[in-house]
């Protein structure tokens, strides 16, 4: 079985398809994560309730986490392998005159870079909001302990963190603007009418997701300047 399957894991086409399928799982997570995060706009009670619901059944949470971790590892491993092979193939930047035929773009060329930046950001992000015990000071707003809501609010009042966060979510947007349509192509979906629409949707979705995540610190900062949350 293993020896029969081994050649596929060395094949250029199958490796891309693994990247595509794991990418789909990760895109799914990003969209759910964004939708969930928007609950923050409904106030501390709703947001903390959402967080508690996610943690209500630890077994389910861990199943989801394991799926995501495995998907991320497979995705990152194979994209690195593919990139190394592409560098060895006498590829990019080999001509004296640097130009394109008009199809490639910044997002496509820097997929591995935006991907790796996101990988490093992930650890910062988990350290900020998921891992470790938080002090009461970190979660307290105007003298009231607001739990995760307070933590997010206080975190985004740090300009350094906001800049890193915004850079990261726009990396997500750029990565997805190419990644989503790329997924369809790699798995083998092409339709004369729908494929051009998928390519446009991929660009739009990338921008919408990045803008959506950006909205969170922006709204928090604006509300802070206007006098903070009504506690």
């Amino acid at each position: 079985m293993i020896t029969k399957l081994a050649p596929f894991f060395r094949s250029s086409v199958f490796k891309k398809q693994l990247v595509a399928i794991t990418g789909l799982i990760l895109v799914g997570f990003i969209i759910v994560h964004l939708a969930g995060n928007f609950i923050i706009f409904l106030g501390p009670d709703a947001f903390n309730h959402y967080s508690a619901t996610l943690h209500a059944v630890p077994e389910l949470l861990w199943i989801a986490r394991v799926i995501l971790i495995v998907a991320a590892i497979v995705h990152i491993y194979f994209t690195i392998v593919l990139t190394i092979e592409n560098r060895k193939s006498g590829g990019a930047g080999r001509y004296a005159v640097k130009t394109t035929h008009g199809e490639t773009n910044f997002a496509k060329k820097f997929m591995i870079l935006t991907g790796l930046l996101l990988f490093f950001f992930l650890f910062l992000h988990l350290a900020d909001f998921t891992l470790g015990e938080k002090t009461v000071e970190q979660t307290t707003l105007k003298g009231v302990d607001l739990g995760l809501y307070g933590l997010v609010w206080n975190s985004f009042l740090n300009p350094f963190r906001v800049v890193v966060y915004l850079a990261a979510v726009w990396c997500v947007g750029m990565h997805l603007s190419h990644g989503i349509q790329s997924m369809f192509q790699s798995i083998g979906f092409y339709h004369n009418r729908y494929t051009p629409q998928i390519r446009s949707a991929s660009l739009v979705l990338g921008a919408v997701i990045a803008a959506g995540f950006s909205l969170i610190p922006v709204v928090i900062i604006v509300r802070h300047l206007m006098g903070g949350p009504t506690v």
Binding site: L82, S89, T100, M111, Q181, S182
Partner: peptide, 16 residues
């Protein structure tokens, strides 16, 4: 793959 060509990453420069 054996000939040492790279992998497609869907830039679509080829089509153009």
């Amino acid at each position: 793959d054996a000939e040492g060509f790279g992998n497609c990453s869907n830039h679509y420069e080829c089509e153009a």
